[in-house]
Write a protein that binds this DNA or RNA. Sequence first.
DNA 1: TGAGGTACTTACCTTTTTGTAAGGAAGGAC
DNA 2: GTCCTTCCTTACAAAAAGGTAAGTACCTCA
Lengths: 112, 112
Amino acid sequence: MARLPYACGLDAAVDLMGGKWKARILWQLHDGPHRFGELRRSLTGISEKMLIQQLRELEADELVHREVYREVPPKVEYSLTGFGATLNEALVPLGDWGHEHMARIEARRAAG
Amino acid sequence: MARLPYACGLDAAVDLMGGKWKARILWQLHDGPHRFGELRRSLTGISEKMLIQQLRELEADELVHREVYREVPPKVEYSLTGFGATLNEALVPLGDWGHEHMARIEARRAAG
DNA sequence: TGAGGTACTTACCTTTTTGTAAGGAAGGAC
DNA sequence: GTCCTTCCTTACAAAAAGGTAAGTACCTCA
């Protein structure tokens, strides 16, 4: 979104993890490193282009680490950095809130 | 963003408060009702069109309540609903995280 | 008659984000 | 040689988000 300077901490945080895919990607990495193909299969609906694009941005923001294994066929693992892990923890209450109110949210959105 | 059905709670939550302005609007309403003009002046950089648009969406999602006072000149107050207040609380850790790491985030983004 | 204040509304446009489809590199297995 | 896997890359198009500028309605006060 690139909206510097930030008005507040929340503004900055949303700039990093907002959008359609980033929160889900961070979530997936919660339990350890995952390969590109694994992520693609987990995040149903995402295209390879979007996945790599989001991963590159998360990497540039130092939230995700990319480890390349020089093998054939190629193997690349993505994992949370320490920084990314702290963000993930800050997202837990938001995830819980969404989970708790999912039915209400979907009902409103479907009606709208 | 309209991306039903949601893959997880975080997905749903981000759908409600994602974007450039919504988190900041919710944040502003934390300490009680505010008039349209007050919000416009607080949220530096926002246009009247964007403000009303975001407020209407927050209202449709039952996060914000709109109260009209039939006076001249007009007076309209926006406030958090109980539902909106619970979301705001879930956003506190994220806001704290952003605040804590603001310098690092801005530096990375500026470098980008 | 006309200016002023508040809260919108509308038309139009630009930018950003997201999606689709196809192709490429690298080397092992056949 | 040709296929297979994995991890990307590119060109292009569609959709969504965001921004600009102007105008509206209401009544009050001068």
